[in-house]
Structure formats: structure tokens, C-alpha cells
Design a protein around this nucleic acid. Structure first.
Length: 934
DNA sequence: TGATTCACG
DNA sequence: GACGTACGTGAATCAG
């Protein structure tokens, strides 16, 4: 072993630069056998190989290392929280390749070095300084200008791309100053890429001029008064602090603590088995062969997988059988360490949390399971109770074999928040919300439920059981088998830990397997953008909204409840009087028998089950014949309002927060809409005056205001755009009353003679079109004869022939592809379109409606994803989404600022991906409660 | 558990 | 020619 010193030559390779160059230079290659993205790894290996070949000559290095960044938080972030803040997130298909580039470096038998919390540049600086002091030469393989400050005294750079050495002269050329003054120039000029502020208005040229004139930055700042240009002088005086901070940011640290020395970096011969093993594992055929030749070894045979017939047919990875007995019960920190280490090494980990209930806002964490490799999963029990010896209900003592909660969380937090490790979950919103309450903010993450939703929306549900059975042919352990059901149901913390291990670890195992199947399919199925841009980023936004909740005034609801109960009792007595007997008014069956058998009213129609239909439309028709149906309608309305709203809503007021927290289901609707549950806050009454008053109970707290913003006619606007209806588009551009305009066009009535009745009919037709109009449906809606309704539709299509074309084209597309798409590329599968019989009609109308409803849903999703940044700094919170409306809570006084910011996000939400021919218009309202805000 | 009804966009 | 139909949701209730 040679002691590093005079005559030694150290090469330092900027690994991250290699990776990004490789990633961007190559098309997104995937490994044939499992679809794993490996383009960047391939490029990286080729660059390493080229490097090795090019440096075999007489000037070969004696020592070499590839240096990588590790962790995203460095001392520079502590100096300046905006450091590198506008850097784009790592592309999704690159992330899993990062650990493989480390593996590749090691396979080449080159020292692979990284230090947590330090940028590669600082490690390079430290090693270069050490080598220089030892009297050796250094070549930094990089073209990064941030490293140029190190050049000089035996240190040079080499731009592998341009095949060019960069020495003192090269640096002078670039910065106009000697290497030792480069940081001064950078401090002044700033750097938009790393978000180093610098001095506004001063670029590299000016900076070099000033430094050369004054000798150093410090001198310049001290003598700033002498500068002749007034603006420049003022900048340097005003921004002194910012410039000094910038210098600290660009100055590389030569004193990074390292747990190795230069001697450890000595050049080593590659081991043929190791490198060829790695390359064949990656399935790099030509590179494997080339390196085998150069090493004089036999190239291993790489199994030829059958070329993929269709992108959809990407072969599933080979998995070992799912075996609940194989999972690890993590009892101590030592048990946990290998799982955390492997997660770091691989760059991903599947995570699942177990809790005492399904309500994330009102349940406790019981355990966490992890899985890094299919078949290798663990469960970390945290709050299981021990089985009691003496009584039936178990004790409150903690069970044996658990790491203390806080200790385990402290171990998990760095992993779950590590930007270099992808966290994989099934319905991550749940885990995100649970762990947020324990101070852990999971990022970055993938969600198998949302991947399935993006690819398989309309085909089947996206719950884990469904996905496991469909894609893994495995039926997971039912939760019922652990918790039981009904009255005797227990909570998860009462489940014996040994049983919990099997169940919980299996969930993580299944989730990881699903991810490995789904992830490579996103791109061939062309839903990467939808998944990455619309589904996944919505998760933290919704989590915030749900955790914020909305204030609901219990007293108001309670008062309404009593009033409703009184009125109902009165109505019920009347109804019984009219019927001549007492019966359950809430029973459609009993009501039908009273109306049609006992009273022999006309129009009794029995449905599939043999019961009379007693829906609102039937009762409305009967109301002309008799008083009883009208009373029942009134009673039903009150009953609905009381049971679903004034009573149930009170149950949902959270004990801790005093607010109501709904839960949105991202994959709830096939069209891309959200759905809202527990409670559903997307169907709070508004249409009837009586129901509308329920919104008075949704209030702003003291000192705050509710602001509601809703898209005006968004679906009709989208229809006008998609079907390309010139007159409709023009009407929207002119801000006309669209229903009146439609009526005028259809019935040849001048706008000034428009009557509310004609307008109402046109409005019904406009909506009918969005739903896939039929004569029957319109007739029923407008209560006109079917022939007349058909006549309206015919005339509509005559005036707007593009609508008919749109409908025909959409159905034809659906028939051909068994799916339709929104303007943003969301896929809505429509397998039923191939059905025969009445189901075909349903499928057709659904196919016509889906792109319109779905595009509207995409637009508001985009607005929501952008909203947190747009209202950052305003004292406002986004609380609710109701399909085309967003509800905010804002400190009184800041309403106008909020409306301005939020409105502009909403109105511009389609751009830049989609340029609509019609403007999107958002109406705003505000008030102390939701009724006023509307 | 399924059907019915009705609240919303 | 007959059939059955507006699109998308969730919750409460009855009845089996």
C-alpha cells in the first residue's frame, strides 16, 4: 500500500453529475424482466466504463473515488432556508435508480463515498485539500462551476462531456478571476439554480470587474461608498448581509468529517465476478460483453425474456409465495436496524400503520409494518395491550416484546422523512394523517391505491383485498378474523401481537409487491402524469383539509332537530288521520300498500321486488289526487334533514378539535371526482329553503370568515370546448346567459323576449346533453310528453351539430378502446360499453358524460394541488371541496387577498397543459356561515 | 345485505 | 319492435 503523497494522483468523480447526465441523455429504458427503470444506471455504468478506459494510460490515477450527495438537509439549509429551494423534485423513475448507482460503483471496485448531511461538493473539497497538502495531484471529474474554486496548486478539473481539462486559465476564462476569488464572484452574482441570492442586478461579468478592482469581496463591501454607479453602490450597501450570506453558501467546506483517509481510495482492480454479476443482473447485454472482453473473462449469459407483445403485458416480477409465518416480530431496536438499513440501501420501503380505529382523527397508533423485499416484512408493535389473566376485557398494561413508542418513532422518523427513500403505501392519506399526529411527515411516497386508480379506474375497486386477489392471486388475512365483528369487536391494540405480526406485515408485503407490479406499468399506460400530477400530490393537500376540519355549531343543529321533530310528529298524525290507520310513514312498502291497495290511487307500479314505487316523482303526481302524498313528501324531507344532517352531523363533531372532519376518497368516483364520507360534506342541502338553513350551522370561528369560490358552469364550458361549438364558446367569451342563449337559438326567440319558462327548458336540455341525453329522460325531467322532448333534442342537435358529433365520436372511441379520456389524459375504463341490452345504454351515456365530468374534476384537482403555495402567507385555510366549489376559512380582513389569490389559481387551473377556448369563471362569496358565503 | 329514497354537483 | 334510460356520489332506513 502506498501512502498518499508526492507523485500520487487522486481522481474525484462527481457522482451526482454523472447520474443526472446519464438520466437526461438516455431514453427511459426499463429492465426487460420486470420493467424496473434502469436508463440512468445504464448510462452511469457506461460513463464509468469509459472513464476507466480513458484513464488506463501513463497518467493513470493512483487513487480514485466517486462522491455522492446524501440527505437533502445540509448546513447551508440552516444558514438559508431557501437554499436549493426551487430545485425540481427528482423524477420519479430516477429515484429507485439512485441506490443502484452506488451498487454499480462498488461493482466497478471504485471507492464509493457519501456522508449524511453533506453535499458531494464539500467532500470533494475536503479530499482535494487533503491531497494537495500531502503534495499530490488532484483531478476532479466534473464541470460544475461550484467546484472551480478548488482549482490551482495541483488541482485541476476535467469535463468528461467536452473531454476538456479545466485549469487556472479555464477558471479565469469562466469567472474572470483567479480560482481563489471565484467564491467572491459567485457571492455577488448569485446562482438561480441553487437559489443563492447574490446581489440583485450583478452578474458574473460585473462581479469579476468589481473583484479585480478591489481585490476581494470584503474590501469591496467595506469600500462600497466609493463606487461611482449609484444603483450598484446602493445595492452593495443595502444587500451586504445577503451577499455575505451568499458567500457562505458558495464557499465549499474543506473540513468535512470523514471516517476514511486518502489511502483508502487507492485504485483497485475490478473483480470480474462482481462486476459481471452486477451488469448481468441489470441485464445490460452489450456492456456486460464489452467489459467481459476487456477483463478477459467469459460474459455471463443473460436470459432472453420474450419481447413484450404489448406494453400492458409487462411481465410481473417473480415473487416468493406470501407466507405469514415468515414475518419478523420486531421486539427491540436491534431487530429493527436491519430493516431500516435495507430501506436506505434500496431507496424504498413499504409502510403500513395499524391503529385502534378507522377514523384517523380519533384513533391511536398501535403498530407499524415495513417491507423492503417481497416476502421479507416486519411488524413493529407499539401499543398492544397484554392479555389479562383474570378478566375478559384484557388489561391496560402494554404487551411484552414492544419497543417503547417514542424510541421506535425516533428510529422511524429519519427513514420516513428521508427524501432519498420512497415510502410505499396503500391509501397513504390514512398513514400520513395518523403519523402526522405523532410528528412524522412522510415524504416522498407512492400509493398503490392511486396507481391502480390511475390505471384501472372503472374496471374494479382499488382496496387492498381487491388488488391482492386480482394482481397477486392471494387472499389477504381478513381483518375480521382478528377483530371479530359486531358488538364483540375488539380494537387492534387488543389483538395478540403474534397474530398482528402476520396480518400487518402481510399488508406491507402485499403493498410492496403491488408497487413493483404497478410502478413500471404507469408509463406504458400513459398515466404517469395523471398519477404524479393529479392523484399523488392531492394526498397531502386533502390530509391538511381533513385535519383542519370545519366548525359546526352544535346548538344550531340541535335547535333545528327539535323543530323538525315537532313538525314531523304533527305531519305524522295528519298522515295517519288521512290514511285512516297508523303505519310506519318511513316504510315505502307500507306506504305503497296504503296508497295503492287501500286507497286505490292510480299509477301504482311495482318494482323488481314487488313493492310499489313511492319515490318523490310518484308522490308528486299523486299530490293532485289526494292530500296524503304531499304530507308524506313534507315528512320525508324533514326526516331526511333530521336524520342525515341535524342529528348525524352532531355525532361527527370531534371531541378534541370541536370541528367536523370529513374524509375524502380520492379513488371514490370513476370520473376523477372526489367523494366525501364520514360525514359526507358534499351533499349538505342547498336546493330547498328549509334544507339550506342547515348551512347556517357551518360557521367561521370568532375573527374569521368563510369564503366560497365556485366554478360557473364548468361542465358546459368544457363541453363547448371539447365539442368545439363556436356559438356556445362565443357566448361564454361574451359572458352571456348560456341557458337563455341556448333557448334563443333553439326556439328562435330573441334574447330580449326570453321567458323564464323557455329558459328553464333550455337549461334542462343543456344539462341533459352533459348526461348523455335521451328523449325519455328529458321528458321525465321536464314532465312533458316524450315526443315533445324528442322534438327539443332534435332541434338542439340541428342548431349545435357539433354536440352530436362529439357524442358519436366519444361512444365510438369507447367502443374501440374500452375507455375514454379527459383532456388531461385521465383514463376512465368503460368495459360495459361492449355489453348488450339495456346495459349498453347506461354505458353509452356514462362514456359521454365521463370526459366532461372528469375534465372538470381534473381542473379543480389541479387548482387544489396548487392552492397551498398560492395562499402561502395568507391567514387562510382550504377546508372543503364540493366538486366545483372550494370553501376556505380566512382571518377577517384578509378575505379579498384570499379571493384574489385563490380565484386566479382556479381560473388558470387548466393551464398550461390544456388551453381552453373558453374562459373559466369563478364566483366568490363570503359570510359568517356557509349559507351566507354562497 | 340489498333495495329504496333522497341530499348534493 | 320492445325494453328501459338522464351522469356521478354517500347515508339512512326498512325488510328479509
Amino acid at each position: 500500500m502506498t501512502q498518499f503523497g508526492k507523485g500520487c494522483h487522486l481522481h474525484l468523480i462527481d457522482g451526482s453529475a454523472f447520474i443526472f447526465r446519464a438520466y437526461h441523455a438516455l431514453p427511459p429504458l426499463t429492465r426487460k424482466s420486470d420493467g424496473m427503470p434502469i436508463g440512468a444506471v445504464s448510462g452511469f455504468c457506461n460513463m464509468l466504463q469509459k472513464y476507466v478506459e480513458d484513464n488506463a494510460g501513463p497518467d493513470a490515477p493512483t487513487h480514485v473515488a466517486v462522491i455522492f450527495d446524501k440527505g437533502s438537509h445540509t448546513f447551508r439549509n440552516d444558514l438559508y432556508d431557501q437554499y436549493k429551494a426551487n430545485r425540481e423534485a427528482m423524477p420519479e423513475d430516477l429515484r429507485p435508480q439512485i441506490p443502484l448507482t452506488r451498487e454499480a460503483t462498488i461493482a466497478f471496485n471504485i471507492a464509493c463515498k457519501e456522508t449524511e448531511g453533506y453535499e458531494a461538493d464539500d467532500i470533494i473539497a475536503t479530499l482535494a485539500c487533503q491531497a494537495r497538502e500531502a503534495g499530490g495531484r488532484v483531478t476532479i471529474i466534473s464541470s460544475d462551476k461550484d467546484l472551480m474554486q478548488l482549482v490551482g496548486d495541483g488541482v485541476e478539473m476535467f469535463d468528461a462531456m467536452k473531454n476538456r481539462r479545466i485549469d487556472r486559465e479555464g477558471v479565469m476564462e469562466k469567472f474572470g478571476v483567479a480560482p481563489d476569488r471565484v467564491v467572491d464572484v459567485q457571492a455577488l452574482a448569485g446562482d438561480s439554480v441553487d437559489n443563492v441570492p447574490g446581489a440583485p442586478g450583478i452578474g458574473i461579468k460585473t462581479a469579476a470587474l468589481l473583484i479585480n478592482e478591489y481585490g476581494s469581496l470584503e474590501e469591496l463591501l467595506d469600500r462600497a461608498e466609493e463606487i461611482k454607479q449609484p444603483k450598484r453602490r446602493q445595492t452593495l450597501i443595502d444587500k451586504r448581509e445577503q451577499i455575505e450570506l451568499s458567500k457562505k453558501l458558495v464557499q465549499l467546506d474543506c473540513n468535512t468529517p470523514l471516517d476514511y483517509t486518502l489511502d483508502d481510495l487507492e485504485v483497485r482492480e475490478p473483480d470480474p465476478d462482481t462486476i459481471l454479476g452486477f451488469l448481468s443482473k441489470m441485464e445490460f447485454r452489450s456492456l456486460t460483453k464489452r467489459i467481459a472482453d476487456s477483463l478477459g473473462a467469459d460474459a455471463p449469459v443473460i436470459a432472453e425474456t420474450a419481447p413484450q407483445a404489448a406494453p400492458e403485458a409487462a411481465a410481473a416480477p417473480e415473487f416468493p409465495a406470501i407466507d405469514p409465518e415468515s414475518y419478523t416480530w420486531v421486539k427491540t431496536a436491534e431487530d429493527l436496524a436491519p430493516f431500516i438499513a435495507e430501506a436506505h440501501e434500496r431507496g424504498w420501503v413499504a409502510v403500513d400503520t395499524e391503529t385502534t380505529g378507522l377514523n384517523e382523527m380519533a384513533c391511536d397508533l398501535v403498530g407499524v409494518s415495513l417491507c423492503t423485499t417481497a416476502g421479507k416484512a416486519c411488524y413493529i408493535p407499539l401499543a398492544h395491550r397484554s392479555a389479562a389473566t383474570d378478566d375478559l376485557f384484557g388489561s391496560d398494561d402494554l404487551a411484552e416484546g414492544q419497543i417503547p413508542m417514542q424510541e421506535a418513532l425516533d428510529l422511524l422518523k429519519p427513514l420516513l422523512e428521508d427524501p432519498a427513500v420512497m415510502k410505499i403505501g396503500q391509501n397513504m392519506k390514512y398513514d400520513l394523517k395518523v403519523l402526522a399526529r405523532y410528528g412524522i411527515n412522510i415524504a416522498p411516497f407512492d400509493d398503490t391505491m392511486l396507481m391502480s386508480y390511475a390505471m384501472h379506474g372503472g374496471l374494479h375497486g382499488h382496496g387492498m383485498d381487491t388488488l391482492s386477489e386480482r394482481y397477486l392471486s392471494h387472499e389477504p388475512i381478513p381483518i375480521k378474523s382478528l377483530l371479530g365483528s359486531g358488538k364483540s369487536m375488539i380494537t387492534f391494540d387488543r389483538v395478540p401481537v403474534a397474530d398482528a405480526v402476520k396480518y400487518a406485515a402481510e399488508d406491507a408485503d402485499i403493498t410492496l409487491r403491488l408497487w413493483q407490479i404497478f410502478k413500471p406499468q404507469l408509463s406504458p399506460k400513459k398515466v404517469t402524469r395523471v398519477y404524479e400530477g393529479l392523484e399523488r400530490p392531492l394526498v397531502p393537500v386533502l390530509a391538511q383539509m381533513e385535519m383542519a376540519g370545519v366548525e359546526v355549531d352544535r346548538a344550531t343543529l340541535s335547535r333545528m332537530s327539535s323543530a323538525f321533530a315537532q313538525k314531523m310528529a304533527a305531519l305524522e298524525a295528519e298522515i295517519h288521520e288521512l290514511a285512516g290507520e297508523t303505519f310506519n310513514v318511513g316504510s315505502p312498502k307500507q306506504l305503497g300498500e296504503i296508497l295503492f291497495d287501500k286507497m286505490s290511487l292510480p299509477g301504482g307500479k311495482k318494482g323488481k321486488t314487488g313493492a310499489y314505487a313511492t319515490g318523490a316523482d310518484v308522490l308528486e303526481d299523486l299530490a293532485t289526487e289526494h292530500d296524503l302524498p304531499g304530507r308524506v313528501l313534507d315528512w320525508r324531507q324533514l326526516s331526511k334533514l333530521k336524520s342525515t344532517y341535524t342529528d348525524a352531523l352532531q355525532e361527527h363533531i370531534n371531541k378534541d378539535t370541536g370541528r367536523v372532519h370529513t374524509s375524502y376518497v380520492i379513488s371514490g368516483a370513476v370520473t376523477g371526482r372526489l367523494s366525501s364520507t364520514d360525514p359526507n360534506l358534499q351533499n349538505i342541502p342547498i336546493r330547498s329553503e328549509e334544507g339550506r338553513r342547515i348551512r347556517e350551522a357551518f360557521v367561521a370561528p370568532e375573527g374569521k370568515t368563510l369564503v366560497a369560490l365556485d366554478y360557473s358552469q364548468i361542465e358546459l364550458r368544457i363541453l363547448a370546448h371539447m365539442a368545439d361549438i363556436g356559438s356556445l364558446k362565443q357566448a361564454f367569451r361574451d359572458g352571456q346567459d348560456i341557458h337563455a342563449m341556448t333557448a334563443s337559438e333553439m326556439f328562435n326567440v330573441p334574447m330580449e323576449d326570453m321567458t323564464p319558462e323557455i329558459r328553464r327548458q333550455a337549461k334542462a336540455i343543456n344539462f341533459g346533453v352533459i348526461y348523455g341525453i335521451s328523449g325519455f329522460g328529458l321528458a321525465r325531467n321536464l314532465r312533458i310528453p316524450r315526443g315533445e322532448a324528442q322534438g327539443f333534442i332534435d332541434r338542439y342537435f340541428e342548431r349545435f351539430p357539433g354536440i352530436r358529433d362529439y357524442m358519436d365520436d366519444t361512444v365510438a372511441f369507447a367502443k374501440e378502446h374500452l375507455r375514454v379520456e379527459t383532456l388531461f389524459g385521465r383514463v376512465i375504463n368503460t368495459p360495459e360499453i361492449a355489453a348488450k341490452g339495456p346495459r349498453a345504454g347506461f354505458a353509452k351515456r356514462a362514456a359521454i358524460n365521463a370526459p366532461i365530468q372528469g375534465t372538470a374534476a381534473d381542473i379543480i384537482r389541479r387548482a387544489m394541488v396548487r392552492m397551498p403555495d398560492a395562499i402561502d402567507g395568507l391567514p387562510a385555510k382550504m377546508l372543503l371541496q364540493v366538486h366545483d366549489e372550494l370553501l376556505f376559512e380566512v382571518e377577517t380582513g384578509a378575505e379579498d387577498d384570499l379571493i384574489k389569490a385563490a380565484k386566479s389559481v382556479m381560473e388558470g387551473a387548466a393551464e398550461p397543459v390544456v388551453k381552453l377556448d373558453v374562459p373559466l369563471v369563478v364566483d366568490a362569496g363570503m359570510g359568517r356561515n356557509w349559507a351566507e358565503a354562497h
